[in-house]
């Protein structure tokens, strides 16, 4: 009979974290930026149909990077949670903080108890009355939640993107500027700027009364990128 080797809990956690990070690093990055007329989310995503950014509720958007099937599962669970809550109580009772907590709990549980951790980072963004009231929750594969101000970067090359965006983001900026800043930040230093075909862009529109989530694509996106 063979005895299992002893592995320290520190080592187990480190191995899991490395595994998740490697998975996420293989994927592309995504940025969310708070602008005067809404929250803009820009992702590098050549697919026209497999979205990384989507609507959760009236003023709440979801975005994920890493393994598609895993963040898609989280997205659907979030939509269900939000819709049931809004139906049972009132639409205004659905908020990003509770949702971010639920995501953090779920990811934390999976990280410690399941065979393999989820290889995802997700964003829960809630539009406020003004940019100061916007909420950007950045949640990591192990359930760590970060409440970010102004902008946040998810995914593989997040450090470079964060640095580049940090240097150019000077609020207040409008939505179109935010889209261009996001696209520029996602472009690797030595490459031609990303065009509309390589980007997925969506925003939460501060001017809309109820469902604020909108996609920006095709010729409209081209026009914004051309500035």
């Amino acid at each position: 009979m063979t005895m299992p080797f002893y592995v320290s809990p520190e080592q187990v956690m480190k191995d899991r974290a490395d595994y998740a990070r490697k998975g996420i690093a293989r994927g592309r990055s995504l940025v969310a930026i708070s602008a005067t007329d809404g929250i803009v989310i820009v992702a590098e995503n050549p697919s026209r149909t497999l979205y990384k950014i989507s609507e959760i509720y009236d003023r709440i958007a979801f975005a994920g990077v890493g393994k598609y099937n895993e963040f898609e599962m989280l997205r659907i669970a979030g939509v269900r949670q939000a819709d049931v809550k809004g139906y049972s109580f009132a639409r205004e009772d659905v908020n990003a903080r509770a949702l971010a907590n639920a995501y953090a709990q779920t990811l934390g549980q999976i990280f410690t108890h399941e065979m393999k951790p989820y290889e995802v980072e997700i964003l829960v963004a809630q539009l406020g009355e003004t940019p100061d009231d916007d909420e950007l929750f950045h949640i990591l594969y192990d359930g760590t939640v970060m409440d970010e101000e102004g902008f946040t970067v998810l995914g593989g090359l997040s450090e470079q993107v964060h640095e580049s965006l940090g240097a150019t983001y000077k609020p207040p900026i409008d939505r179109a500027t935010a889209v261009r800043l996001g696209a520029a930040a996602l472009t690797p230093a030595d490459q031609a700027p990303l065009n509309a075909g390589a980007l997925e862009v969506a925003y939460l529109d501060r001017a809309r009364a109820r469902r604020a989530f909108q996609r920006l694509k095709g010729p409209e996106l081209d026009a914004v990128l051309a500035g």
């Binding site: 599962m73 989280l74 669970a77 979030g78 269900r80 949670q81 049931v84 809550k85 049972s88 509770a98 907590n101 639920a102 995501y103 709990q105 779920t106």
Partner: peptide, 9 residues
Amino acid sequence: MNESSLPFF
């Protein structure tokens, strides 16, 4: 419904 857990089936 428990607020802190997401609905998975």
